[in-house]
Design a protein around this nucleic acid. Structure first.
Length: 316
DNA sequence: GTCCAGGTCGCGC
DNA sequence: GCGCGACATGGA
């Protein structure tokens, strides 16, 4: 069972540990619960204990289960498996997952000027939970397009179950491109219920395996935001919405991912239900400069939180 | 049965 | 460059 280590002092004693420094404006909870990724495997969020569980696979090692918690200003990463040899790679992955390198000062300064966004600063909100690879985020984004959230979760859960590397206790890591490529398009359709997205996901996986799509080059930080936007757009199944989303996961909020959610939010929040063009809606966020997407997203997210707290409908 | 959801693609103009 | 229909899936 998952918590056998807690009951068995021998295993508890052999827990392998690693710590990572976190920025002063970092909040584990706000980062984890920053958008819907935390409800999808291979993440599992224990809200009560404030522990993020995750399964990660390593070449030649297999899939291992890790937990991440925040203690005295730093992140504590633990596993029953010995993670010492994986320390550097694990650090790199966690920095990406929790956007630890993102500088939020400017965004929080902008929030501080707006009464509506004070809570954002207090919550240390502004980092988005990401997968450990761009491939994972791109696949998940494709799974969010033109469907409802419950189906997105279903597709991703089925995909991870179907071809992710299994861990000792039966959980699974997010599949690597080779695993998805080997799985194939018809399986993505039939077993993972991905529908017409199957060819996109397959092409994404195969493109990475063959080297035709070089995600490492895209993600190495050398490209300008607009160049990066164009690069993401060339990925199969990634259009303007997905590309803006991927930009945000790279800490770049210059562009807003326009979708039905954005439009509904703007109508509700700024237009008293009235219709407007996308450009008119986008113009409302111009004052956020480089932080347009997070300005919008934090607004939506905190509206949603207030709604949930006052007993409204629960989502994501 | 019909509509549509955190869109994207390929086509015709 | 811009508008438009098709595209799987499943819940409302």
């Amino acid at each position: 069972m998952r918590h056998s280590a807690l009951r068995n002092p021998h295993f508890a004693f052999t827990m392998s540990r690693l710590t990572i420094a976190a920025p002063a404006d970092f909040s584990l909870e706000s980062t984890v619960v920053s958008h819907g990724w935390y409800v999808m495997p291979p993440f599992r969020w224990d809200a009560e204990r404030g522990v993020l569980h995750r399964i990660e696979s390593f070449e030649g090692v297999g899939a291992i289960e890790i937990s991440i918690r925040f203690d005295s200003g730093k992140l504590v990463v633990e596993s029953k498996r010995n993670i010492a040899p994986l320390r550097e790679e694990l650090r790199t992955r966690i920095r990406r997952m929790l956007q630890l390198d993102l500088q939020l000062g400017e965004f929080h300064a902008l929030c501080g000027k707006r009464k509506s966004h004070r809570a954002v600063v207090e919550a240390k909100f502004g980092r988005l939970l990401c997968g450990s690879t761009l491939f994972e985020d791109a696949v998940k984004i494709v799974a969010t397009t033109n469907t409802v959230w419950a189906q997105t979760v279903r597709m991703v859960t089925l995909l991870v179950e179907a071809c992710g590397e299994p861990s000792a206790s039966g959980g699974r890591a997010f599949p690597i491109p080779a695993q998805v490529a080997a799985f194939g398009e018809s399986e993505l359709r039939e077993r993972c219920r991905m529908g017409y997205r199957a060819p996109y996901v397959r092409a994404l996986a195969e493109g990475i395996v063959s080297g035709e799509l070089d995600l490492a080059e895209i993600a190495n930080g050398a490209l300008s935001t607009e160049e990066l936007f164009k690069s993401y757009r060339r990925l199969p199944g990634i259009g303007p919405y997905g590309s803006a989303h991927l930009l945000a996961m790279d800490g770049r909020h210059d562009r807003i991912a326009v979708d039905t959610e954005f439009r509904a939010h703007v109508r509700r929040r700024h237009l008293r239900g009235a219709e407007a063009s996308d450009n008119e809606m986008l113009a409302l966020y111009e004052r956020w400069g480089r932080w347009k997407y997070m300005g919008y997203w934090s607004e939506l997210w905190f509206d949603l939180r207030r709604k949930v707290e006052s007993g409204g409908t629960k989502r994501k």
